[in-house]
């Protein structure tokens, strides 16, 4: 279920512009890996390459190698749509489908792909995913109501339920709490910690406390200036990065001297 992701000198481009340069790292399964760094350092760009969402933007491309349990994600005969079915993603702002009920939102990964399932199966998947996203008790009486009627934090957990309903190997979270209040944030953080039991979890965050609270590994990215590519500065166990970083830049950032 949970896969190891290996990046080998990965370069990410928007047309001719090199956004992220030469990243090599191994993301461990059944752990939370946090990407931190100042705005514009390419951490969001990089996380979008892990499920080939990056190439949705016209002119965006990737050079280098990305292996998922040894399989080349950017191989010549790989279908990006299939990659995305195995790598779930949660976005900055909660984005449930406004035309669908809560239940249909959870099942959207199946329904939008025209997969048929029995009623019993559908109910089982819905319950399992909502329980997994710590949302079941709050919404079990109104599964047929529209998902947009929920609070921001509930909507974000609905999006997580939607992502885990298709049983992916990896969950990517792109600043999942930046649009939420502190209580909803705490609920998502708890959930992330539970999710690593089953999934490889990668989270991009602006919030250093959040990274230090929940992640096992932390990658620090930085840019030398605007127009220059983002680079991976340091990648290590989270305690090490926050308490005793090797690089001066990392120390400056985690101690709050810039960014």
């Amino acid at each position: 279920m949970s896969k190891r992701i290996e990046l080998k000198s990965l370069d990410v481009y928007y047309k001719a512009f090199l956004a992220v340069e030469d990243v090599s790292m191994v993301i461990e399964p059944k752990a939370i890996t946090a990407f931190i760094g100042p705005s514009g350092c390419g951490k969001s760009t990089l996380i979008r390459t892990l499920n080939r969402m990056h190439e949705v933007i016209p002119g965006a491309r990737v050079e280098g190698q990305l292996l998922m349990d040894g399989e080349d994600v950017y191989g010549p005969d790989v279908d990006p749509v299939r990659v995305r079915r195995q790598v779930g993603m949660v976005f900055q702002r909660p984005n449930p489908f406004p035309t669908m009920s809560i239940k249909d939102n959870v099942l959207s990964g199946y329904k939008l792909n025209n997969s048929r399932m029995s009623k019993a199966e559908a109910e089982e998947i819905t319950e399992k995913a909502l329980v997994g996203a710590n949302l079941w008790n709050e919404v079990k009486d109104r599964l047929e109501k529209p998902g947009s009627g929920l609070s921001g934090g509930q909507q974000q957990r609905l999006c997580i339920a939607r992502a885990i309903a298709v049983e992916p190997d990896v969950i990517l979270m792109d600043e999942p709490t930046s649009a939420l209040d502190p209580i909803s944030t705490a609920a998502i953080e708890d959930l992330a910690v539970e999710l690593k039991e089953h999934f490889t979890v990668v989270i991009v965050t602006h919030n250093m406390q959040q990274a230090s609270r929940i992640s096992d590994m932390t990658a620090f990215f930085n840019i030398a200036g605007s127009g220059l590519p983002g680079k991976l500065i340091e990648y290590d166990k989270t305690e090490k990065v926050f308490s005793n970083p090797t690089e001066q830049q990392t120390e400056d950032y985690v101690s709050g001297r810039f960014g």
Partner: peptide, 25 residues
């Protein structure tokens, strides 16, 4: 655009995204 991205991220091909997410919305 976030809705399109949500669908793509679920592994929905573009044409089904347009047909089943963008058009109904």
């Amino acid at each position: 655009n976030e809705l399109r991205e949500a669908a793509y991220a679920l592994g929905v091909p573009k044409w089904l995204t347009v047909l089943k997410v963008v058009l109904p919305t």
